[in-house]
């Protein structure tokens, strides 16, 4: 089940009620992603049914946005900012260390399915550079030495 019957019914009702159903594409995709971590092909097909569009029409929009994941991701996505402010304060070294610690390259997911590492553009945390976001938590002024503890904390948070 990508979405509960109730969620589907609610979304369909909203689609019916809005004069511009297409406006809801991202809302529907977000709902599917929030529930499943990513949007699978079946997710695109479900969104298409909810929205009354073809899967291709949904896919055209879904593949445009980098924060709609069309490939499986780990339980938590690590977005590490690679834009200018964070770059100026050591994000490249941070990225290297993260890859070492996780044993994966950018764009990959750890073998245990816990983390996916994705470089991202500016997170709007320039005063707290270098910054990264893990799941919904934003980490600022991250020192290389802190990374292990941060990752451990995130792992424990999931398991607890």
């Amino acid at each position: 089940m990508l979405l509960s019957e109730k969620q589907i019914t609610q979304l369909k009702r909203r689609v019916r009620e809005t004069p511009h159903p297409r406006e809801m594409i991202l809302d529907v995709l977000h709902a599917i992603q929030d529930a499943n971590g990513w949007v699978s092909d079946e997710g695109v097909e479900l969104a298409a049914i909810i929205l009354g569009l073809s899967p291709l029409q949904v896919e055209e929009v879904a593949t445009f946005y980098d924060k709609i994941y069309r490939r499986p991701v780990g339980r938590k996505v690590i977005h590490i900012c690679d834009s200018i402010c964070c770059w100026s304060r050591g994000s490249e070294a941070l990225m290297q260390r993260l890859q070492q610690l996780l044993g994966i390259a950018a764009g990959e997911t750890t073998i245990d399915g816990m983390f996916t590492l994705l470089p991202t553009c500016c997170l709007g945390a320039c005063a707290d550079a270098p910054a990264l976001r893990i799941g919904k938590t934003l980490y600022g002024k991250v020192a290389i030495e802190q990374l292990e503890a941060i990752l451990d904390g995130e792992r424990t948070e999931v398991s607890s």
Partner: peptide, 10 residues
């Protein structure tokens, strides 16, 4: 607000 170096609106 996505221009690097810009975080005022946030």
């Amino acid at each position: 607000e996505m221009e690097p170096g810009t975080f005022k609106d946030r």
